[in-house]
Nucleic acid binder design. Structure first.
Length: 785
DNA sequence: GCTCACACTTAGGACTTATGTA
DNA sequence: TACATAAGTCCTAAGTGTGAGC
């Protein structure tokens, strides 16, 4: 990624300004366990995007090509059949056109969705629940949302309780229709009585538009669903219990190494290598065209590990005299061969792989078939640490069954070890955790690599929902929290001052907490680990941030802050070196302990979720003007982009970016020439003259003036579209939109907005996201974050 | 109050597949 | 049909946060 000093090249986030928030000075005293506010519409409640004076270059202006309104059908569990509403295809629960193709092969529990969140009284009024009133939590893991009401969970032996569990899908059920547009209200009324009470609706074909389906969706409206909500706790409940029964087939290993026999050169001469030596040499060779080759640390680490495999007395004595090109070229030709395979060959290969992997792809959790996420053991390779990682290039050794601990239900059969003659390291039956297997990370032996269920699983969905509920809870507390930290900017105790300023930065700039890091990790920072050199005060009240954050992504931002913050930062810097900690009295534990005094379960990362989601909600609400689907999609993308900028979600500029821009410019120029020509022809046609010959000297068709005018207009539209595409492409070249959508934006905001504005959800969520967010699909259209 | 093991979420880039366009 | 590009998926690194043990 390049970081040009040219202002125009910077992602927008780097040109963002923070307005001082003057409303904060009339703060109330800071107290532990602040009570949630009633969510007034004060400036304080507004998302970052509305508070910052963002210098924005227009918006994303192209709708996705949505010609394929594919319909996601929430696949039904295959283990046991269920007759419940729960297994209705998503399309029937949400919207959209039938699409047979996408439904058949998936069988995981992606089924829609019981939205079991606890009832609150409307979005602005959050009753204090027990947790809130319980004060600082010294207790174990306070669960913020109703953990007794798992998302999606539909064990087959619980049919009887199907009733109404979608009724309590959100607090907005309590809301009257008053907040809805009239058209919406009518639709809801029409639908409220239409749902059959029993739910044998496995396949409901919908031919009408998404919105119609959405609104006609026969949602049971049970106002007192609070009481009818299933009282189940996570199966086999109990402190920390995640499942009662767990069955799976373990993990699959990468194939054993097949030597290729291509000889690398040492001092210009071919060298014989053992298969093990050749394997590691090949790992290096295939990376010859990557940036890692420019990093001495990478080469040094590789050499250190390879040398051990070569042995002290090997012919090869230094890396500089090695020529890996023959292996690199062999690898390239293998890649090319693969590319040249016919579609049928590729398909056959894929099917073969599927057949081999099928059994590892699924687990059965409490009787429900769920997809496993990463069931493939990581193959050996060279460690590709990001940024200036001190361990880059080290050999990541092959993982064997004897490295792997399996976690499985007591009554489940122990997975057969797929490599004959070997056996698992250990078998556990720990139902307080969600992992299915783990092994020690060969690069950092103290750490682990886990095998978890896929994002579409109930367990993940449940925890996702809890995350968003916690962030929503913050909405009710945020005013008090901001008042509290504002008051503490000038606290006489420096620790408190640092806590206040750090919280301010986490809240306003969506910084990460910043845990301490070891010396054998890349040198990156978060809020608590900011160094003096990372924050430069520029009077009267500007702070210039410049540091490497997670994944060594650079955070560069100049913000105007409140004067007390500015002064506090100046004071924290006093007498320190550039490499010293800015917040020397603070770490994430202390910070989070403090945050928990303000709201149960509050930690630094909740602010990111909160600010991202509230920004989306706010921007969608402000910017949706009742346009068509394409225009609404643009509004969504624009909001999504703002969130990505706030969270500093960047991507590197693609290698082909400048070529693409050049090509677009050329095309635009060509079209402009076409217009000039057409205009000349038009002038002649108006005088009754034939058009001039084209550039090849050939005669052109003689068109009448009307036809020429139409052609000119069409070409102009084409140019405009290309200009917009160009702008969007440039605008988003360093912004990654996906990360926030996957991790920070409460899907219920999106689903409800889609329902309100007749946008098919498939325009916003792809198949994976639909599966991941199945739990949110039943949300009431009036839902607001 | 601190460290560390552990469990989990968040993240960008590589790779693959789908789609659009000439 | 071939190629370019966009979209989707996979991979695994790199974070956050909890709680036990000292």
């Amino acid at each position: 990624m390049s970081y040009s000093s040219d202002e125009d090249d910077k992602p927008l986030v780097f040109r963002r300004n923070l307005k001082p928030d003057k409303t904060k000075c009339s703060s109330q005293p800071s107290k532990p366990s602040l009570k949630p506010s009633n969510g007034s519409d004060s400036e304080d409640d507004k998302p970052l995007s509305t508070k910052f004076s963002t210098v924005s270059k227009g918006n994303t202006n192209h709708a996705k090509n949505g010609s394929h309104t594919s319909v996601f059908k929430a696949p039904k569990p295959q283990v046991k059949d269920e007759d419940s509403d729960e297994e209705k295809p998503l399309s029937s629960k949400f919207i959209s056109k039938p699409n047979v193709g996408s439904s058949s092969k998936v069988h995981q529990n992606g089924s829609a969705s019981r939205d079991n969140q606890s009832k609150n009284i409307g979005m602005n009024k959050r009753p204090l629940n027990d947790e809130r009133s319980s004060g600082p939590s010294s207790v174990k893991k306070p669960k913020l949302s109703d953990s007794s009401t798992p998302v999606n969970r539909k064990p087959v032996n619980m049919k009887a309780e199907t009733k109404s569990d979608s009724d309590d899908d959100d607090e907005d059920d309590d809301d009257s229709d008053d907040d809805l547009p009239i058209s919406q209200r009518r639709k809801n009324q029409a639908s409220s009585s239409s749902k059959p009470s029993s739910s044998k609706q496995k396949v409901i074909k919908k031919n009408s538009s998404s919105l119609n389906q959405t609104n006609k969706k026969s949602k049971k409206v049970v106002k007192n669903s609070k009481y009818s909500k299933p009282s189940k706790v996570p199966p086999g409940s109990g402190e920390g219990q995640k499942w009662s029964s767990l069955v799976h087939n373990g993990v699959i290993f990468p194939p054993a190494y097949k030597p290729h026999g291509v000889k690398m050169l040492y001092k210009g001469k071919p060298v014989d290598l053992t298969p093990e030596q050749e394997e590691v040499a090949t790992m290096f060779a295939v990376m010859l065209d990557t940036d890692y080759m420019t990093k001495p640390k990478f080469k040094e680490n590789f050499w250190g590990d390879w040398r051990q495999i070569l042995g002290k007395n090997h012919l090869i004595q230094n890396l500089d005299d090695c020529d890996f090109k023959p292996i690199y070229e062999w690898h390239q030709s293998e890649k090319e061969k693969k590319k040249q395979m016919t579609t049928e060959e590729k398909k056959a290969l894929k099917e073969e792989k599927m057949k081999l992997e099928e059994k590892y792809m699924w687990a059965v959790v409490d009787g429900v078939k769920e997809k496993v996420g990463n069931f493939r053991v990581e193959p050996p390779g060279l460690f590709r640490g990001r940024g200036e990682h001190p361990k880059m290039g080290k050999l990541k050794k092959r993982i064997h069954p004897s490295d792997i601990t399996i976690n499985i239900g007591k009554d489940a059969p122990i997975p057969e070890c797929p490599i004959s003659g070997e056996s698992w390291k250990e078998i556990r039956h720990d139902n307080t955790v969600t992992w299915l297997a783990y092994w020690n990370d060969p690069i950092n032996i103290k750490e682990f690599k886990y095998v978890f269920l896929a994002a579409s699983s109930s367990l993940k969905g449940q925890s996702d929902k809890e995350k968003y509920e916690k962030a929503r809870m913050l909405k009710g507390y945020i005013q008090g929290i901001r008042n509290a930290y504002t008051k503490d900017f000038g606290h006489k105790d420096e620790t408190k001052r640092q806590v206040a300023v750090a919280t301010y930065l986490i809240d306003k700039l969506a910084l990460r907490a910043g845990n301490e890091k070891d010396d054998d990790e890349a040198d990156t920072v978060g809020c608590c680990t900011l160094k003096v050199e990372n924050v430069e005060p520029s009077p009267p009240n500007i702070l210039k941030f410049d540091f490497l954050g997670k994944d060594s992504i650079r955070y560069q931002n100049e913000v105007e802050v409140e004067l007390p913050v500015f002064k506090a930062i100046q004071q924290f810097r006093t007498g320190k070196k550039g490499s010293d900690d800015l917040f020397d009295k603070l770490d994430t534990s202390k910070l989070n302990a403090h945050l928990k005094e303000l709201m149960p379960g509050l930690t630094a990362k909740v602010f990111r979720t909160y600010n991202a989601s509230i920004t989306l909600d706010d921007m969608l609400s402000r910017e949706t003007k009742g346009g068509d689907v394409a225009q609404n999609v643009v509004v969504y993308q624009h909001a999504n982009k703002e969130v990505a900028i706030i969270c500093n979600h960047q991507r590197s500029v693609s290698k082909s970016h400048s070529a693409q821009m050049t090509r677009l410019n050329e095309k635009i120029d060509e079209l402009k020439d076409v217009i000039k020509e057409l205009e000349a022809d038009l002038a002649r046609a108006k005088k009754g003259k034939p058009p001039l010959k084209n550039s090849d000297g050939k005669p052109k068709r003689n068109l009448n003036p009307e036809a020429l005018e139409k052609k000119i207009a069409q070409t102009k539209v084409k140019i405009e579209k290309m200009e917009r595409d160009k702008e969007t492409k440039e605008d988003l070249k360093t912004v990654a939109l996906g990360t926030s959508k996957i991790n920070y934006l409460d899907p219920r905001i999106t689903v409800a907005w889609c329902k309100r504005h007749e946008v098919p959800i498939e325009k916003i969520f792809n198949k994976s996201l639909l599966a991941k967010f199945a739990w949110s699909m039943d949300v009431d259209p009036s839902f607001r974050f």
